[in-house]
Design a protein around this nucleic acid. Structure first.
Lengths: 328, 328
DNA sequence: ATGAAAGCGCTAACAG
DNA sequence: CTGTTAGCGCTTTCAT
């Protein structure tokens, strides 16, 4: 392996000069630079970034912590986040926790051991305080999880606001028997949505039915099962706010099977504006998240932090957009 | 930051001994070990893996090269691959090329610079020879791309075999006007499928219609558009072998709109057995890939290579499974 | 079983 | 503008 020292020796300059050429440092004469560049080419020199990283205490790795990639929402998040990291010269390390606490903690310890420059959190099994404790002195930013922003930076959709909006859109039509379903009701994000659901009722002087709040509904299959259950138990539900277009698709699937007319007998609202919302019959009314903008802002911010610029914690929220189609 | 040297000084032993304790080396007395362990605890020592990596010339990073994560097939691949890497103590770096050659080359150069221990390739803009040239002396393994196996290791589904099987299933029913659509016809994988499609015809003494081969069809939207085109141009197609359940879903969507009965007037076959194939009406007949097995085998293999075990290049193929549902 | 010492390849004061 | 020098924190012979 040819090192910086070999290049220095061969081109008759010092290691420092070679280093300067490599890192494009200004104080080096054009003549010397070209000479060194030529030797580097001739000897096919490749800088050893391990050494560089070691010296600079930077891995150029940013990790994204997600429950599971095999989920359209999370793969969308990673897609944009990763692309933003690449543009900034960072590698994206993906860590799936499968909602296992032990695995999540292990990732935090990688951060402590300097294997990672920062972590982007999209979901967690721990409280803000705990996360802050596990990652002390290191960089962690939440993406679209509705944390307070007191312990670390947070970039997220205003889940409550948009949920109020879509819930109201149903309430205004005179539908009052509304259901709400979520993936994992204990997460801050889902809590914010639930609050929005309740708040919309309160605003109209109405009450929601606690039995119509369903938890752990996240996939197409879950949507189908929920649909079956509604029919079997003859639940008098007129509208459902789901947490995902996939759940909405599953619900539609089971409604079609049981000849329930949508939206006449049952209104359904999805989330994320995934292409699947175009392919069901009827097409799904859904909510457009702001992942792309958010990812860019978030990564710019995190890179600034890694470079030591910006210190004060930030919480930035984005407004969602209701995309009305034919399921509501 | 407390280093190995601090621990050595405090516990009254040498750096080497501490190093031995950290890396669980056998030749160290229980007494000394405990003493050192205690000091490490007290002073909250965290080994600096950057230094370790530098010494050992390993990043513990394995990269996965994919065109784009926002695609159900690729996110499924990454999901299993990443999980397998984690089990082996490696981090997964994801690199989306967006089919850009320049970006792909850049990833190869990261490999040369030792920022990555290995690359798993799921798709490429280059030929086998070129890839081998760009990555010389480094580890690269193809996942589910139908390369020859002469230049680097290959793990893949037997695309031709399974495509023959599903095409035949349609031909046997007496359908002869069959269409084939693919994402990117120039890729080895798609070529293998196309060969299977053609071969199935040949076996029955039939010919395929060249005008019924469609390229660059990969999303739900593409499926919808293709469906519209079939109707508009009044193409006499009786069955379609798609390369993806999403395309199949889009086709069904447009068929429903135009009151085309499936499978009576048109048979449709998907690929990958994604949950979306359960939610359409009718449900999609599809092909079960073997990503999970494949990922585990592949990662075991790659880790062996990183550790210097195994040298000879391997090509391992897996058989797909036809999942017959109601769209064919 | 333990320690001494060398060095991995690079960067970054500092001096000139 | 260029060279000298001193490490970064850890592993790994080689002695003892």
């Amino acid at each position: 392996m040819v090192t910086i020292y070999d290049i220095a020796r061969i081109s008759g300059v010092s290691k420092s000069t070679v280093s300067r050429v490599v890192s494009n440092h200004p104080y080096v004469s054009a003549e010397t630079r070209n000479k060194v560049l030529k030797v580097m080419q001739d000897y096919n020199y490749v800088p050893n970034s391990l050494a560089k990283q070691f010296r600079q205490k930077q891995t150029k790795n940013i990790a994204i912590l997600i429950p599971n990639l095999d989920h359209p929402y999370f793969s969308q998040v990673v897609r944009y986040l990763s692309s933003a990291c690449y543009k900034k010269g960072f590698k994206t390390v993906i860590h799936q926790t499968f909602s296992d606490e032990y695995t999540e903690k292990d990732v935090y310890s990688q951060l402590q051991r300097n294997e990672l420059d920062a972590i982007i959190l999209t979901s967690s099994s721990f409280s803000e305080e705990d996360i802050a404790k596990y990652t002390e002195n290191h960089i962690i930013v939440a993406c679209n999880e509705d944390y307070s922003g007191d312990y670390f930076d947070v970039f997220c959709l205003d889940e409550e606001e948009i949920t109020i909006k879509v819930t109201s859109s149903l309430l205004i039509k005179g539908l009052s028997k509304l259901a709400f379903c979520s993936d994992n009701i204990t997460s801050p994000l889902q809590q914010a949505r639930l609050n929005g659901f309740i708040e919309a009722h309160t605003e109209k002087g109405l009450h929601h039915n606690k039995h119509f709040i369903f938890d752990e509904i996240s996939s197409i299959e879950d949507g189908i099962h929920l649909g079956e259950r509604i029919v079997k138990d003859q639940l008098q539900i007129e509208g459902i706010i789901t947490g995902s277009d996939f759940v909405a698709a599953g619900l539609i699937r089971s409604a079609v099977k049981h000849h329930i007319e949508i939206p006449k007998q049952l209104s359904i609202i999805g989330f994320d504006n995934h292409p699947i919302s175009l392919v069901t019959d009827p097409q799904i009314s859904t909510i457009c998240n702001r992942i792309e903008d958010m990812s860019n802002d978030l990564v710019n911010h995190i890179v600034d932090k890694i470079n030591g610029i910006r210190k004060t914690p930030v919480k930035k929220t984005y407004s969602g957009e209701f995309v009305q189609r034919n399921s509501s």
